[in-house]
Design a binder for these strands. Structure first.
Length: 211
DNA sequence: CGTTCGATGCACT
DNA sequence: GTGCATCGAACGT
């Protein structure tokens, strides 16, 4: 039968993908695609930057104080979404990793926009076409920005990333030049090199582009 | 270029 | 009451 462009089999990442050491998952998520389907349309982007937050022994992880109402998703099944409000302004998206009862997650920090660029521009309140002043790479640069562009908020907390409206997919993008360094924007455990990004990619956050 | 700082909501102690 | 896994505007150099 004829296969059209819109009939591409969505290769959604299975739960086993997340049921692994968090650093492994953080690295493996580079090049994968985060997809959000809403009545407004589909918005997606290729992951170009991640950070690992691992266990109660990691002072920067939300699980550091032990189980609370807010961090409960971290103690649950791998492959679920953990979304929370940060600074009262931004929603941050994580994928829960490791195993049930072992609190850890990967924060998605930046995407290269793929589907639904106009919808994402609209959600971000940007001009409806990219330009020199509003480059495509800026649409989903930074964890707060990508959530807003994809329309992700607290309603998406605890969604199953292995099926349904919010998923992670493998579209076959090959990632070379993986860089690794300290996490950004935290005030404790700043030395742990648990941030991963695609070296030189323009959508990576954190000021100047790093190798 | 660089750095500083206010906005803004809520979980947690 | 305190402190954020941020962002972007407003400054200073």
């Amino acid at each position: 039968m004829v296969r059209t462009r819109t009939e591409i089999v969505p290769n959604v990442l299975p739960r086993a993908f997340y049921n692994r050491p968090t650093l492994t998952v953080a690295r493996a998520l580079l090049g994968k695609v985060l997809v959000h389907r809403t009545p407004e349309g589909v918005a997606s982007g290729m992951i170009v930057e991640t950070e690992a937050y691992i266990g109660e022994d990691d002072p920067a992880c939300h699980a550091a104080p032990g189980p609370t109402r807010r961090n409960a998703p971290l103690y649950g099944r791998p492959g679920m979404a953990y979304v929370y409000l940060n600074y009262g302004v931004h929603y941050l998206v994580n994928a829960v990793t490791e195993a049930e009862g072992r609190p850890a997650a990967v924060l998605i920090r930046a995407l290269e926009p793929l589907d639904g660029i106009e919808l994402m521009l609209k959600r971000r309140g940007l001009p409806l076409r990219t330009s020199a002043s509003v480059p495509r790479a800026s649409i989903c640069r930074g964890p707060g920005n990508l959530s807003r562009a994809l329309g992700i908020s607290l309603s998406e907390n605890l969604l199953d990333l292995t099926s349904g409206q919010l998923t992670m997919e493998d579209r076959g993008f090959r990632v070379t030049r993986v860089s690794r360094g300290p996490r950004i924007g935290i005030r404790v455990a700043v030395e742990r090199p648990w941030r991963f990004w695609i070296g030189g990619h323009p959508a990576v956050s954190g000021g100047r582009i790093r190798a």
